[in-house]
Design a binder for these strands. Sequence first.
DNA 1: CAGTCATAAATTGTCAACAATTTAAGCGTT
DNA 2: AACGCTTAAATTGTTGACAATTTATGACTG
Lengths: 232, 232
Amino acid sequence: MTGTPSIVNAEEVHESPTLALRTFDSIKSDIINGELAQGSKIVESDLALKYGISRGPLREAIHRLERIKLIVRIPHAGSRVITLDTRMMEDIYNARESLEGMAARLAARLMSDAEIESLSALLDQHAAAISETDGKAYFQREGDIDFHYRVAVASQNQWILEKLNGELYQLIRMCRHQSGQFPSRAQTALEQHRQIAAAIARRDEELAELLMRRHISGAWEIVKTILEDQND
Amino acid sequence: MTGTPSIVNAEEVHESPTLALRTFDSIKSDIINGELAQGSKIVESDLALKYGISRGPLREAIHRLERIKLIVRIPHAGSRVITLDTRMMEDIYNARESLEGMAARLAARLMSDAEIESLSALLDQHAAAISETDGKAYFQREGDIDFHYRVAVASQNQWILEKLNGELYQLIRMCRHQSGQFPSRAQTALEQHRQIAAAIARRDEELAELLMRRHISGAWEIVKTILEDQND
DNA sequence: CAGTCATAAATTGTCAACAATTTAAGCGTT
DNA sequence: AACGCTTAAATTGTTGACAATTTATGACTG
């Protein structure tokens, strides 16, 4: 029951049973990877043609993307791919800080011993990967998210899990991709992950929350300077 | 710029420009008021007929309700009105605690002096209303939400504001409605609101967050016992 | 009589045409 | 040349019909 096996966390294997959902996934990737440029206008007929479906399910896909905040939409005026700015990312990181802080607290309360064991193993795995590849970007990025995802799951709070995994992480992925590779920080992050895991293992709710919040607000400070440097 | 005049917080005046949105509002009210019973199955054709529109926009309305978590939906299997249980409400209140705690912190940092003044005035208004009507239920409920809404706005965090006002408060309203009138607690709540407002006025971020979280977790303790008594 | 398979009904998913609205272009006026 | 109005094009919103899928029904078999 504990073994989410690998790096990738939640993408389903068997493809979605409906056109709208499959198209939603496609467009989502295209936006995160930057193939659909930020701020570009979405024209329903064009996209429907491009993805080979009719406007009905495409519309549903767009609405789902709006829900995830990858697309912004104005009645009768159409929709555009979102444009990330510092202001918005600050909102995201602040929300994430409070939500993941709570998740860590709940995880410290509720995580099973087996899960804790498995979490620790995950971090060993990360440590190995770091010393091997020494800064291999992609792996670490997803590894980082993997850790946070586990904590969110362990919180057993469906609402929080859904918001983190469904919305916030997507936007952060997109931001990372758009900002190119930024400094590795892998070693520091791993160290902090270890401390958080230790606090959880000790069932110290207060400390787990505190450390998680520090970890995230620290990450924000770095991302912030990068974003600001970029736009000046 | 400060004067949101009255109790009701954000319902737009001029009705929505699209059928789907208007129907969304209608169904939302019907669910919150219990006219559409919890757990009842939603059949698209039936509802479309009932609201006098075609299935297209109705479908969009349903998707929006799913986004708000008032409806749960399974591909090919249809959708049902959500059924509130203690488990889910606990998730909601925990999420709310962390998010509103952060909102209070940000409010203490960012709220303008005029807004603070206005917030204080709102509380005076509430105090007057309480001593007048001494436990007039509806007013106090909305008054309570009004206070929390103001703090969320003052946080200037769009993501948090949207989640609180768009999702969490709706579910709490629904829960309150379904649970009938529960004990007033108006005096206690007002007192706590005052302390929170004072902390914000003092620009004490730490304390504002702490008090807000206590306030909400306290409210949850009460709601929890009510819910448990009901189902046993 | 329980269980299972095939069939029929009900319901959701998808499509293409039509209506309403917004955006752009063209024309005339000042 | 700039502004506003009228008209045309483009785009979104809405509709009803059709296809695919699930759920219910009932006959058949062990």
